[in-house]
């Protein structure tokens, strides 16, 4: 009996790993194809595409596509713009949304629950439906800069950052996490004389590592993948992010090798960021009960 059940367990383990490997392979094929193809000249890339050679770095391998990509488009500028816009938005969003969630969770005020309901209701409004009104609004907003007051936010970094700092999903993530923190910790801090801000900064935020990681990753992905909005609000190359930059490779003569090289370049930062925060991300998803 014991022998059979042990065999069973071994078999089950083998099957489980086989399935996991298969799933991992399915998910990694496109990535491998992209990276491998970025190293091949366009002619060979197309020739290999119908065999498993498409997934192997064989034949005429070089970094030529990368050099050509940099020649064809201001790749460094696009990456810089994306990293800047994404980075500022993520940091500002974590600060603002966590503070809002703190007020929704720990501070009692009139209309609190209604306000939270309204914010959560925004989750079901797709961005596309508000894109045009938002564009009209952004085109008329004032800004005080070095040259005095100017009107209209188009063609700037701020128009890509400010509308995305506060969002319902991030607030919701923080609210869910804060609700699970022991209430007596907050009460103890209050009795000890801490102001709401001191409680937020010294007690709640230091305990919020997992949810900060989750919110940062989700926000990062949304911001880094922005396409529709930047196309609408930036006519000048100077402010365009990576996804808009992709257009440059589909104009005139389409070079697949360069496209793959560009895609590899802009995918790497996302993967690196995700791997860096992965552990905390999974812990937080598991603890908040939010399915990713």
């Amino acid at each position: 009996m014991a022998q059979i059940s042990q065999d069973n367990r071994g078999l089950r383990l083998v099957v489980r790993y086989a399935v996991l490997c298969l799933i991992a392979a399915i998910f990694s094929f496109p990535l491998i194809f992209m990276i491998v193809s970025s190293l091949k000249p366009s002619s060979q890339l197309l020739a290999d595409a119908h065999s498993f050679r498409a997934l192997l770095p064989v034949g005429d391998i070089s970094l030529q596509n990368y050099f050509d990509a940099f020649k064809r488009a201001p790749v460094a500028l696009f990456i810089f713009n994306s990293v800047l816009v994404t980075g500022v938005t993520v940091v500002a969003s974590l600060a603002l949304c966590s503070a809002a969630a703190f007020a929704f969770t720990f501070v009692m005020w009139k209309g609190r629950d209604l306000a939270l309901t309204v914010i959560l209701a925004t989750l079901i409004v797709p961005f596309e439906t508000i894109a045009i009104p938002l564009l009209l609004e952004a085109s008329k907003l004032p800004w005080i800069g070095a040259g005095g007051i100017t009107w209209g936010w188009l063609n700037s970094y701020r128009v890509q950052i400010v509308p995305f700092i506060a969002d319902g999903l991030t607030i919701y993530l923080f609210v869910q996490y804060f609700k699970d923190l022991p209430g007596e910790l907050i009460e103890a801090a209050r009795v000890e004389g801490a102001s709401w801000f001191a409680i937020y900064r010294r007690v709640v935020m230091p305990l919020s590592g997992p949810v900060l990681a989750t919110a940062a990753i989700l926000k990062f992905l949304v911001m880094y993948n922005q396409y529709l909005w930047p196309i609408m609000v930036t006519q000048e190359e100077q402010y365009r992010p990576v996804m808009v930059g992709l257009q440059y490779f589909f104009q005139l003569n389409r070079a697949w090798g360069e496209i793959m090289a560009y895609l590899s370049l802009i995918t790497v930062p996302v993967l690196a960021f995700y791997l860096y925060l992965q552990k905390a991300f999974i812990a937080s998803i598991a603890s908040t009960g939010v399915k990713g």
Binding site: P182, E184, L185, E187, A188, R190, V191, E192, V203, L207
Partner: peptide, 20 residues
């Protein structure tokens, strides 16, 4: 008055000490 202005200190059943 808010708790901090009452001059009281409190010890909780769950201790409520800050884990970090």
């Amino acid at each position: 008055l808010s708790p901090k202005d009452r001059g009281v200190a409190m010890v909780f059943q769950s201790y409520a000490i800050f884990p970090h």
